[in-house]
């Protein structure tokens, strides 16, 4: 049983690349663990069909790197880690999101008209 996403689907989609990068800040994770981390943070449980194309794109862009690790008794896993470029992108784009949030807050207060 998993909770539905806390935000509208278009928002989740727009923030997905960044959310995946953020889930890797504390260290390497395999695909399923990334999906669980996203679910725990309110993004809803992403199915593999939605998650892996994103991971593939991030890997192609050089934002994450992947390596196989042998599973303990189970099948092997492909673990993903943030690269330096991915860390830079995360920082840069988080700044933009914050700026967007602040702008919306300021606008909603109705105090800036010039």
């Amino acid at each position: 049983m998993t909770d539905p996403p806390r935000w509208p689907t278009p928002w989740v989609r727009a923030a997905l690349d960044l959310a995946v990068l953020a889930s890797l800040v504390d260290g390497r994770l395999h695909g399923y663990a990334i999906a669980q981390a996203l679910a725990e943070h309110g993004f809803g449980l992403l199915k593999g069909g939605s998650l892996y194309p994103v991971l593939n794109r991030l890997e192609e862009a050089g934002d994450v790197e992947a390596a196989w690790t042998e599973g303990r008794g189970g099948p092997g896993r492909r673990e993903y880690a943030l690269t330096a470029a991915g860390r830079d992108r995360l920082e840069r784009e988080l700044g933009s999101w914050r700026e967007l949030g602040e702008t919306l807050t300021t606008m909603s207060r109705g105090t800036t008209h010039g």
Binding site: Y32, K47, G48
Partner: peptide, 20 residues
């Protein structure tokens, strides 16, 4: 394919259910 199988094994779903 190996990664898809590994993911489906952990999720407990079939590949079709997990990946469409």
């Amino acid at each position: 394919v190996r990664e898809a199988r590994s993911h489906a094994a952990e999720s407990g779903r079939t590949l079709a259910a997990e990946f469409g």
